[in-house]
Amino acid sequence: MANKKFGDTLRTLRKVKGYTQQQAADLLGLKNKSTLGSWEVGKSEPDGYTLLKLCQIYDVQDIYSAFGEISPCKRSSDSIMEHYLLLTDEYKKVIESLIIQLLEIQEKSR
């Protein structure tokens, strides 16, 4: 069985756009709306390509936040910031200095 939370999210995204199941199915090129309906109740899930098409027609910019997940990229950047905030002011100045130096080196190499 597929994920009910996933299906609920698909339904919400569709409704926010104001589409009926039939309209969304037509935009996806599905033969009938029952396929979309089975995704929305959690009986099955779309394949990866179809999920991308769904995100496109529902104007989803950030798939992770749309489905209540944390992006792997966001996790690492948040972790870096959390660590930075734990530093003393003296060490924060060292990090800021290193960042400035790296940006200058990067700019020169362009």
Rank of each mutant, 00 (worst) to 15 (best):
Y91P: 01
L10M: 07
F6R: 05
I70P: 04
K5F: 09
S77T: 12
E82A: 15
K4V: 15
D89L: 05
K15C: 05
D78S: 09
G42M: 02
A25Y: 00
K74V: 14
A2I: 04
E40Y: 00
D89F: 03
I63E: 09
E104K: 15
S65H: 11
Q106D: 11
Y58Q: 02
Y19H: 07
K74I: 05
K108M: 13
Y91R: 13
T88G: 11
K108V: 13
L102E: 11
L54H: 00
Q22K: 14
E82F: 05
Q21K: 04
I99T: 10
L54Y: 00
A24M: 11
A66V: 03
L87F: 14
K53G: 05
K33D: 02
L51E: 01
S97A: 10
E45G: 02
L30E: 03
S77N: 09
Q106K: 15
Y58C: 04
S76E: 13
K33Q: 08
C73T: 14
L13K: 00
T88H: 10
K43R: 15
C73F: 12
K4C: 05
N32H: 05
L103I: 02
D26P: 02
K108I: 08
L102T: 06
D59V: 01
I99C: 12
L51A: 11
F67Y: 07
C73L: 13
W39Q: 07
L52D: 08
Y49N: 07
S76W: 12
F6L: 15
D26G: 07
Q61C: 07
D8C: 08
L30C: 02
G37N: 10
Q61M: 07
Q61V: 09
S65N: 09
L36R: 01
F6Q: 11
A24F: 02
L87Y: 08
S76A: 11
N32M: 00
V94P: 03
L13F: 01
N3Y: 04
Q23S: 08
T50W: 01
S79G: 02
K33G: 00
V60E: 03
E82Y: 06
L102G: 07
V94R: 11
Q56E: 15
T12Y: 07
D26V: 08
N32P: 00
G42V: 10
C73E: 10
D62Y: 04
Q23K: 10
G18P: 00
T35F: 09
L87P: 05
E45A: 13
K31C: 02
L13T: 00
L28K: 01
P72D: 09
N32Y: 02
Y49V: 12
